[in-house]
Amino acid sequence: MVEDEQSVRDLYTAWLADAYDVRTAGTLADARGVLDASVDVVLLDRRLPDGSGDDLLATIDDRRLDCRVAMVTGVEPDFDVVSLGFDDYLVKPVERERVVETVERLLDLRNYPAAVRAFYQTAAAKASLEAAKSPDALASDDRYAALCEEFENLRERVQATAATTDPVLVRALFRDLA
Rank of each mutant, 00 (worst) to 15 (best):
D36G: 12
D54G: 05
A132N: 04
R63S: 12
V82W: 05
F86H: 07
R105Y: 11
S140H: 12
A17V: 07
L57H: 06
L129G: 04
R23W: 10
Q121V: 01
D166C: 11
R46M: 15
F174D: 10
A124E: 05
R155I: 10
L147Q: 10
D50K: 01
R96F: 14
L28C: 13
V75G: 04
L84I: 13
E97T: 11
E95G: 13
Q159P: 03
L154W: 14
T102I: 08
R175T: 10
G85A: 09
S83H: 09
C148I: 04
L43A: 09
E5T: 02
T165Y: 02
Y144S: 10
R64L: 07
Y20C: 03
L35Q: 05
E104L: 03
E101P: 00
A114K: 08
K126N: 06
A131I: 00
L28H: 12
A17Y: 02
D61H: 05
G26C: 09
R46D: 15
V168H: 00
Y89M: 14
N111K: 00
A132C: 08
D40E: 14
A124D: 08
D40V: 06
K92V: 07
A127I: 06
D142L: 12
A162P: 00
D36E: 08
A58W: 06
K133N: 03
A115R: 00
A17M: 07
R110P: 09
D62Y: 13
D136W: 09
A172L: 13
A114G: 05
A118G: 09
D80S: 15
D50G: 07
D87L: 11
P93R: 02
D30T: 04
D18P: 03
A160Q: 06
A145D: 10
K126E: 07
C148M: 10
L35G: 08
T59A: 15
A118C: 12
V170M: 09
T27W: 11
Y120V: 01
D87P: 09
V116G: 01
V116W: 02
E95K: 06
S38L: 05
A139R: 14
S134R: 00
E150Q: 14
S140M: 12
K133L: 04
L154Q: 09
D21F: 10
N153Y: 10
D62W: 11
L48R: 01
R68H: 05
V94H: 09
L177Y: 10
R9N: 11
R32W: 03
Q6R: 15
E156K: 12
R143G: 14
D4C: 08
E104S: 06
A162N: 01
A115F: 06
A14P: 05
V2T: 00
D141L: 12
S128A: 15
T27A: 08
